[in-house]
Design a protein around this nucleic acid. Sequence first.
DNA 1: AATAAAAACCGTGTAAACACCCCGCAGAAA
DNA 2: TTTCTGCGGGGTGTTTACACGGTTTTTATT
Lengths: 223, 223
Amino acid sequence: MEMLKTNERKVVLVDDHILLRNGLANLVKSFDNYTVLFEANNGKHFIEQLNTDQLPEIVLMDINMPEKDGFETTLWLKQNYPYVKVLALSMYDNEQSIIRMLKNGAKGYILKDTEPKEFKAALDSVCTKGFYYSEMVAGKLIYAVNNLSDSEKTVPSLITLNDRETEFVKLACTEMTYKEIADKMFLSPRTIDGYRDTLFEKLNVKTRVGLVMYAIKNGIVNV
Amino acid sequence: MEMLKTNERKVVLVDDHILLRNGLANLVKSFDNYTVLFEANNGKHFIEQLNTDQLPEIVLMDINMPEKDGFETTLWLKQNYPYVKVLALSMYDNEQSIIRMLKNGAKGYILKDTEPKEFKAALDSVCTKGFYYSEMVAGKLIYAVNNLSDSEKTVPSLITLNDRETEFVKLACTEMTYKEIADKMFLSPRTIDGYRDTLFEKLNVKTRVGLVMYAIKNGIVNV
DNA sequence: AATAAAAACCGTGTAAACACCCCGCAGAAA
DNA sequence: TTTCTGCGGGGTGTTTACACGGTTTTTATT
């Protein structure tokens, strides 16, 4: 009654929380017809370990990771191996992260406080239907589209920060003054003013504290 | 060759991240001489499920949880069942959390990106030696005592915020001005200035952004 | 109950930092 | 060409940070 292994769904786990990742790996292995190819600490290690001859069907992808985070890695997969399905795994349920992951190619989005049963359902759904949207995700998406600012409605592109902006945001999350940030970035304080103004507009915040909170909620800075 | 069950170490897991908790539970069960009594979503559920006739030897305790967090629950255990050992489980490695948990009675402190091997070692150490201090924890503690402010040296008590201060910090993590915060708390703006100044001194920060970052790192506000 | 000490509360003032408006220029992309 | 993006600048009012001071209320002790 032994079935052939070729039918098994090959899963890869990418998460820097080793205990969680290990536990998940065991959970996945306990499911019928699922097998774990390998595990990776972050996106960089994942890409290094990826073997073209033996591609996974599903990648369980954490979002907040060092080296190369879930957003980048998912985008990289979409561009290089579009048939590898990504199921995003996150602690946070903020709209921006969900939208960004789905936009980058993730087929589903589950939280770390999900029940194992739902987790299994998500895996199955991604494999068979090609996607998995929980009620939570659907709800957040509906909420998000209903709360788009006017600028976002006309330009429905996702909020993205370039390297320079990201660097600025990280420094804005410290106790440095804008003048000190300007020095550190080898820019004029006026230019820093410009970065701040465009980011305030783009991220829909009004103060530096608002910027900081946004950055933390969206994993731009690591706490 | 079957050993008697009475020798087994009874473990309870308290964490709101169900997937991690489940994985950990399986990991613990896979260890020789360890058994899992039950699991709980948070401190409140844990206390409800606790059975005096069948106390655990070790409680694996997450810190950031809804309802009743790891700090409170550990303190409660220390006061009610001092022989139950707590091994703190956290995502963050900031000194304040470590010190606070150890102060509240935790016998050890490990991070969620710990290797399963070290995790096992921590469990064993807590059971046999009664404590577990990883190099990370020891290092942080040394760093912490070397960086105490003068006021902390004379009064070596832990930093604690009262209700009013906590309320202020939470509002300081929004885009409100101090004047608006004053209105919301039915206080004069000058009084708010006082709160800010004492908190700056107490928490060793210099700007509002510093205050916000401290609050987030130490779980005073929930992101 | 009296009194001292400790908090919590509030007022005025000032310099720095922040937020926001205006503007131009160069180069790449459309 | 136009448009967008990164870059740099001036000016101005508001907010923040940090002084000095004060009163009232709470808490502890004699």
